[in-house]
């Protein structure tokens, strides 16, 4: 049996009358890139926000690295959060800080006693690995959307997470930049040995980055498996329409 780093069982979440998640079961296995697909508003962001407890579920359980997230004290929760990198949909860079300060902020606040040299080395190394060494003294407002996303990924990597959660890493980017980001996601897995959930509705991104797909429809995962299993052999019309839209009706 493969080792699960995230185990989601029977997850429900509603906002008022809006039933977003209705019984979600999902496992993330160690070392894999799992792609979560679903149309806009299907609750993909809500799902990963529940994982890091930015939102709390109405029902169901989430186990991360063997710990049930509902029973953690704030201190334990924060310890767990440091092992999870969360790349936000819109990057969420701190706009009052430079790129360098953005990267340093989580580092210096969570790890005491680092020397200036160690901090600089880490920051510069990460900016190099996301391919943006020259932005170090820029403000987020001066960066393009794709650059922001890459800096956002660099910022989450600075604490060496074991799990990465990418929320629509390629949304709103041109095809070449998308490929750069997809490569970055794969490179992160190689370099940092992470297990990742990649949320997207872009099938190219899914195909390039994912070992396994899971399609979220009407609050549940309707299909999971490899890209071929899920899409090319799809019978469910809702899954099929996803594929058709991306690859045929351009």
């Amino acid at each position: 049996m493969r080792e699960s780093v995230i185990e989601i069982r029977g997850l429900y979440k509603s906002f008022g009358d809006n039933d977003v998640l209705q019984g979600v079961d999902l496992d993330l296995y160690k070392g894999e890139n799992l792609v979560v697909l679903g149309k806009s508003g299907s609750g993909k962001s809500v799902l990963i926000k529940i994982l890091v407890r930015l939102l709390t579920q109405d029902e169901g359980s989430v186990k991360i690295l063997g710990k049930d997230t509902a029973n953690l004290t704030l201190r334990e929760l924060n310890k767990l959060r440091l092992k999870i990198g969360f790349a936000f949909q819109a990057a969420a860079l701190y706009d009052s800080m430079t790129v360098r300060e953005n990267l340093e902020f989580p580092l210096t606040r969570n790890i005491k006693g680092l020397t200036r040299k160690e901090i600089n080395y880490k920051v510069e190394h990460l900016l190099d690995s996301v391919g943006l060494p020259n932005t170090i003294n820029q403000m987020p407002a001066e960066l393009s959307g794709g650059q922001k996303k890459r800096i956002g990924v660099a910022r989450t990597l600075i604490l060496n997470p074991e799990i990465m959660l990418y929320d629509e890493p390629t949304a709103g980017l041109d095809p070449t930049t998308c490929i750069d980001i997809n490569n970055l996601i794969n490179q992160v897995r190689e370099e940092y040995k992470t297990s990742s959930i990649v949320i997207t509705h872009d099938l190219t991104c899914a195909k390039q980055t994912g070992d396994r797909m899971a399609v979220l429809i009407e609050g549940q995962f309707q299909a999971t498996g490899s890209f071929e299993e899920v899409f090319e052999e799809a019978t469910d019309p809702r899954v099929k329409s996803f594929y058709d839209y991306n690859f045929i009706k351009q």
């Binding site: 926000k49 890091v52 930015l54 924060n78 310890k79 959060r81 440091l82 999870i84 969360f86 936000f88 949909q89 819109a90 969420a92 860079l93 701190y94 706009d95 009052s96 902020f105 989580p106 606040r109 969570n110 989450t156 604490l159």
Partner: peptide
């Protein structure tokens, strides 16, 4: 305005998930 914009652009969430 400053905190409001940090809220809607998820900067506050970003702090939360990096244990700040």
């Amino acid at each position: 305005a400053e905190i409001g914009s940090m809220k809607v652009t998820e900067q506050i969430d970003a702090m939360e998930v990096s244990a700040i």
